[in-house]
Write a protein that binds this DNA or RNA. Sequence first.
DNA 1: CATGTATTTGCGTATATTGGAATATGGCAT
DNA 2: ATGCCATATTCCAATATACGCAAATACATG
Lengths: 272, 272
Amino acid sequence: MDDVSGEGPSGSLPRAVALLRALATSGGEGMRLTNAAATAGVTPASAHRLLRMLIDEGLVEQDVRNKHYRLGIELFSLAARAGSPGNLRDVCRPALLRLSAALGDTAFLLVRSGYDAVCLDRCEGPVPIRSFTGDIGGKVILGVGQGSMAILAHLPEAEREEVIRFNLPRLLNFGPFDEVFFRKGIEQVRESGYAARGSGLLPGMAGVAVPILDREGRPLAAISIGTTVERLNAERMPTVVQVLRREADALAAKINPFDAALRRPGQHAVSY
Amino acid sequence: MDDVSGEGPSGSLPRAVALLRALATSGGEGMRLTNAAATAGVTPASAHRLLRMLIDEGLVEQDVRNKHYRLGIELFSLAARAGSPGNLRDVCRPALLRLSAALGDTAFLLVRSGYDAVCLDRCEGPVPIRSFTGDIGGKVILGVGQGSMAILAHLPEAEREEVIRFNLPRLLNFGPFDEVFFRKGIEQVRESGYAARGSGLLPGMAGVAVPILDREGRPLAAISIGTTVERLNAERMPTVVQVLRREADALAAKINPFDAALRRPGQHAVSY
DNA sequence: CATGTATTTGCGTATATTGGAATATGGCAT
DNA sequence: ATGCCATATTCCAATATACGCAAATACATG
């Protein structure tokens, strides 16, 4: 799954990260040494040494009684300051709070990360819901779920195609996925400017999402609302879309104020 | 500040982590190579190579226009599944939601991490507030703030003393701190079982916190409420404390159901 | 356009890292 | 309680790797 095995010392850092990734798959339970070593593609001896280093750094914790290794709180604390340019989360939080309060549903902030989208923030409403991204930090394949779809649909064509090609195989795990239907959905989202779906893969759940675009039209993130199908009826839909779009526009304006001037011609936005 | 300089290759992993820590201090802005190298105590050349590795792993991102390095979203996503035993955050979230909804204030979940406390989760109320821990993942010195104080005060004496000795110098940065006054406060919290303070270091802010204790009386975490001094008047205080304590007791029961039986005699709880 | 700083690459050396075997620890069934 | 098995941990020599230094390039600034 996350194998770094390739003969000879290939550097300790990739191995350590592979171990961290392995531990991440185990949830809060933790993993035994052998298991982690196998998952990461490292010999048990190396795994032991590396994990010890990681424990010294506070990035990994070990349960004394059953020796299970698990990701440490230091890692959590370290990563809290990670994120997209300019503290996107801090900037967007007020908007999420307003959305959650005004609509009475759960609001999400998603950003792209490679071929996935990650939930950067989440503001819960009174109605408990299920979502693909799950908790903050949760990942979902680009194209699954409204927020994720909103980002994918607004990517530049070349990038979009690459993501679609890469993700189509992965999407098969989510059930009977039809490529033409999928592409049609993407087109519809890009034309309408928002992604809405009810009674999709998560039964009883529904959601709406709009992208936050920069000046060049690239999607920086997406804000979305998750709720139940009953609450998101045809009557309420236009209002919700409008509220979301208004917030998204305000956020877009707040995020890139003068950057058209700062940016050199021909040079495209940011890194990833 | 976070120096690993000690002649010769002392392992690439500590250096890489030192760089991550350095980048974490820069917020969303990011850091230049030289600056990060200096902060981490690494030569610029090493910093460059290490950061490149970290970028390959997705743990670091680089802004193309100004070359600023910053922590990557992969790190965020990786750390999302980190945390204390048994998905403490997931277990406690409903309680936080109830607290926030019932009291109309912001609820926090804090856990200990070395000589600090980390905000593991946070559920915002309608009233905007300022807190020491800041956002999720934020750190605060053990003893500063109500939740942090609630944990410190309920540590076993030996541990408590060690933390106090280590933290007293650090506390001087927070203004005129009197050791005897500080210790008196700790005693008071342990006797009463909750930490409450208004008009403390954050003007206009007030809060209450209670610890979540395991069967041996060790503090696993703390839940707290942050609000304004006006909202937390003498009249409301007993109610708030009671609500908090009730949730904390329920959580404690949910977290360690049979562990008294599982635990070998004389062996103390968990790792850190 | 010139100057200074910051970033990136090359290279020899020494060290940290590695895999495998040996040992210690702990769990489990008898 | 005792023995056995699986897992975790330590030891060790070979070697590839990461280090620092120094040169070269890109960048920003005056």
